Amino acid sequence: MRQPDIEIYLKDADVDHKAITTWLTADIGPCSEWAQKGQTWKCTAGNIPVTWIPKAVGKWNSLCLDSDQTPWEDDIACARAAFAALNVEVRCAPGTWVEEENDEDADRWIRISADGEEEITWRTS
């Protein structure tokens, strides 16, 4: 089932919204100018609203695509594409997050890196 939106986390200070623009333009469509409000950056890729939050969780940058019309079925497919395009470690939830999840399930993440793909425990709070 297609997720209603996409959220992935990218590691590394070398990845900024400009690198994200290049990738999203290639995979989705042209990006509008980024608008910064506080620590949050927003643009539109094709017709998809995009939010970039540098260092949202420690050294991890958050990328949110607020649409079910992305080229990716889910967070994992997007994370794989991001890793392939940007060559940085990417983390995402293994499925759609729901408020009622217990803490143990909320800490389950998929890690995609040069080492491959694996499920990890990542305590973000």
Rank of each mutant, 00 (worst) to 15 (best):
Leu24Ile: 06
Leu10Ser: 01
Leu86Gln: 04
Ala26Lys: 07
Pro30His: 11
Val15Gly: 03
Thr22Trp: 11
Gly116Asn: 04
Arg80Val: 06
His17Gly: 14
Ile53Lys: 06
Gly58Ile: 01
Trp41Asp: 15
Ala56Ser: 10
Ile8Trp: 06
Val15Ile: 09
Trp109Gly: 02
Trp72Arg: 11
Glu100Ile: 09
Lys42Pro: 06
Thr124Tyr: 08
Lys37Arg: 11
Ser125Ala: 13
Cys43Leu: 00
Val98Glu: 12
Gly58Lys: 00
Lys18Gly: 14
Ala56Met: 07
Ile53Met: 07
Glu118Ser: 13
Trp52Leu: 08
Leu10Lys: 05
Gly38Gln: 08
Lys55Tyr: 05
Gly58Leu: 01
Glu99Pro: 05
Ile6Trp: 00
Val98Asp: 08
Thr96His: 13
Arg2Gln: 00
Asp115Ser: 15
Ala81Thr: 06
Val15Gln: 04
Pro30Gln: 11
Asp103Phe: 14
Ala85Arg: 02
Ser67Asp: 09
Gln36Thr: 10
Gln69Gly: 09
Asn87Ala: 12
Cys43Tyr: 10
Asp27Glu: 15
Ala82Lys: 07
Pro94Lys: 06
Lys59Trp: 09
Asp14Lys: 14
Gly46Leu: 04
Thr124His: 06
Ala19Arg: 11
Glu101Tyr: 10
Thr121Ile: 13
Arg80Met: 08
Thr25Asn: 03
Phe83Thr: 04
Ala56Thr: 02
